[in-house]
């Protein structure tokens, strides 16, 4: 059985908001180390990987590996019934087809109980190889959100170039184009500043609609890391106290 007590429902609400438009159904794989999710988006262009460590919960118990197949739309609706600062307890019995959620209000005696149907999801787990990326960029997550939102007004794609100059985001739309250069900030480390590590010049093109979607995770962390190598998927990673959310995005074939 699974019993997990989360100090604040907000973390789950934000996680669901970060993935619900990419993925329809997914398995939350629970084991004694915590809860993991890996799912491809419907068009198999992006992969999202979530980890919630057992140590990030106020109380966590999972006797044996348990896949919880969830419709993310339904999960989002049930989580909307929780206040951000409610304590959230999720429970599932072995072989059960129901996930129960309890929200305990922080400052009152209100206890709300919900149940959600679980489903069997037959999803392949992909093997993500360890990669030594040619470039690592760390920047404020709000800045990344602004860049991808701004450029998505102009075109469908963004070219990301990492060079000695810094990291440049370039969009070439039919009617307008734009580019944004971020240089490493020498006097400011993350979360406020930008750090760039580069072994090799990188130049890759990605679909902006996915990046706009990934940027929703800025509610989970003030910092985002971009890891890039030529001709491999971009890794967009947000770390937070209880775990992380990582997105992998396949590149577009460049011009």
């Amino acid at each position: 059985m699974l019993e997990a007590r989360l100090a604040e429902a907000a973390i789950l609400k934000r996680l669901l908001d970060s993935i619900k438009e990419l993925v329809t159904d997914a398995n939350f794989e629970c084991n004694e180390e915590g809860i993991n999710l890996q799912a491809m988006d419907n068009s198999h262009v992006a992969l999202v990987s979530v980890k919630l460590s057992a140590s990030g919960f106020k109380k966590y118990r999972c006797d044996r590996p348990l896949p919880l197949g969830v419709n993310l739309g339904s999960f989002t609706k049930v989580l909307k019934c929780a206040k951000d600062d409610d304590v959230c307890i999720i429970k599932a019995a072995d072989d059960a087809d129901i996930l129960s959620l309890t929200y305990e209000a922080r400052n009152s005696d209100r206890i709300a109980e919900y149940e959600m149907k679980l489903m069997d999801i037959d999803a392949d787990t992909l093997n993500i190889p360890d990669t030594d990326y040619d470039a690592r960029v760390s920047m404020p997550s709000a800045e990344f959100t602004r860049i991808v939102r701004d450029l998505s007004q102009l075109g469908e794609s963004v070219r990301i170039e990492v060079s000695k100059e810094g990291v440049r985001f370039i969009s070439d739309g039919e009617a307008a184009n734009g580019n944004i250069l971020l240089r490493q900030t020498d006097d400011d480390a993350p979360p406020e500043g930008v750090t760039i590590e580069m072994n090799q010049h990188v130049n890759l093109t990605f679909s902006l609609k996915y990046l706009v979607n990934f940027a929703k995770s800025s509610t989970l962390s003030n910092v985002v890391q971009l890891m890039l190598s030529n001709d491999v998927p971009l890794l967009v990673s947000y770390d937070f106290n209880q775990g992380h959310i990582r997105y992998y995005l396949a590149p577009k074939i460049g011009d």
């Binding site: 491809m40 068009s43 198999h44 262009v45 992006a46 992969l47 392949d124 787990t125 992909l126 093997n127 993500i128 190889p129 469908e156 093109t205 679909s207 491999v232 998927p233 992998y248 995005l249 396949a250 590149p251 577009k252 074939i253």
Partner: peptide
């Protein structure tokens, strides 16, 4: 989408 590669081409099933 034109020119868009699939993530499965990079991450294979184990």
């Amino acid at each position: 989408e034109i020119g868009q590669r699939s993530i499965e081409g990079f991450f294979k099933n184990p």
